[in-house]
Amino acid sequence: MATLSSYFREALKNIEPGEDADHARDAHAEVRNVLQQSQDLRALGINPVLIGSYKRNVSIRRVKDVDVFGRLDAADDTLRPGYALELFHDALLGGYDKNRVHTQHRSFKVDFPDYDLTVDVVPARRAGDNWEIPKKTDQDNRASWIETNPLRLNELTTQANTDFTLNGKGIYVPTVKLVRQIRRTWLGDQPGGLFFELMTYGAFRDNEPQGGSQAEYLTLVLEQIADVLPNVAEDGLDDPTLDGKKIATRATEEDFKIAIKKFDEASELAREALDEDDDCQAAVLWQRLLGETTEDEQVFPTPEYCNADGTRRATATTVKGAGSPAGTGRYA
């Protein structure tokens, strides 16, 4: 078994958001400030907060969008969703050129071209223990409210990373990042990163995998995802934040068909890599599984003692030969 744990640590570093994290923080702070400039939104108790993969610390490079949840703490059930969207639109236009603000189904997208980043802003009002966000349909162009609880997913992520550990350190979050990277490598747009994050969450919660390395956790989780994906494609994916609800996805039947096939192959590849005794051969397999970064570099590094083709490099000298030829009893 070639677990190559130190190289998995490097692989994880290679997909860390890097400077995107700084940009995301700055962009969020700026949007938050713009929203809070609006008197109308202040009257409704505007209290924006970060959500999404960046907030949950499961984003991978590159981070291209950041989600801001525009909580209206003082809004009651008389607030119409269309009016809320109007207020957010006006507020954003107060801070940004109209070319940078794009209206979407239930949110607004603000461009940060200098960062090559967008910030998705969604209005939200309290609905009991959960929240509601507007949804504008294409058919009649009328908005309605839809229930959600993205803040709950933040909590569940933190809890899972506390419950599942390797040598006392959370193993859930790094596994999600690797699964997101595999999805990005092996699939097209859909199903998206959040979908596979939640499948990973299900794999941990339902199967409680036990392993001695990142490689083992990733393999076990991939196998579980590959196992349940056909049923999920058929029945939908449970939303862990809302009882009895399913996760909405834009993935088509064809998308799922491809995803089932690809994740089947990916899980088999992971198992082959894990069972391989030769480190160098295993590294090549892990490289195929994890693909390249957005900068076209291998996510999984080639070990220093291996060639790129999976053969082992010849080493000139071994530590065994080191030492002083002078003998013992030296003084300096």
Binding site: A316, G321, A322, G323, S324, A326, G329, R330, Y331, A332
Partner: peptide
């Protein structure tokens, strides 16, 4: 000395190891 010797042989760069012996 062992680690420096090893590094010198790996890099093929010069190491000079000096000592006094026999008191």
């Amino acid at each position: 000395t062992a680690v420096l010797r090893w590094a010198a042989e790996q890099t093929q760069r010069p190491l000079v190891s000096v000592a006094v012996m026999r008191d």
